[in-house]
Amino acid sequence: MTRKQRRAGFIALGLGIIGIAIGLVLYAMRDNIVFFYSPTEVVEKGIGPGTRFRLGGLVEKGSVEHTGAATIKFVVTDLMKSVTVSYTGIVPDLFREGQGVVAEGAIGPDGIFVADSVLAKHDEKYMPPEVAKALKKSGRWEEGQMNQDEGKGTAQ
């Protein structure tokens, strides 16, 4: 074994060990690294009233209602479970029905999630308005939506 090979071996071994160590740390901390919980995870983990967390999912179509001057109520869903959210304040530009959203707050005694901040989540799709319109018209829009939702369901 030449000196060069030995040095290369040391580097590979060192990186391997550090990689495994960091991997284990990240795995142990996975619950804290996730930015939000989906409605299903909220149910599975049994997060009760009063605990602050971020709730993420899609704004259910047709669920947004204005209950006060600046208060809105909407349903966040991951297509399996859903949680009703109430929020007072200004929502971001991208807040739309059928789009992703991340709300921060806690579940109240009545089971409604009271959010004090709402962020819009953008998906990875970029297209001109005409293309979006054409896709919707030809009925192929839903295919894309469904693929995306399937991806959401499997990715934890």
């Binding site: 939000f36 989906s38 998906d123 970029y126």
Partner: peptide, 11 residues
């Protein structure tokens, strides 16, 4: 991919 994030996945 590994964690859910506010940032969108790769396009």
């Amino acid at each position: 991919v590994w964690w859910n994030t506010l940032h969108q996945p790769a396009s």
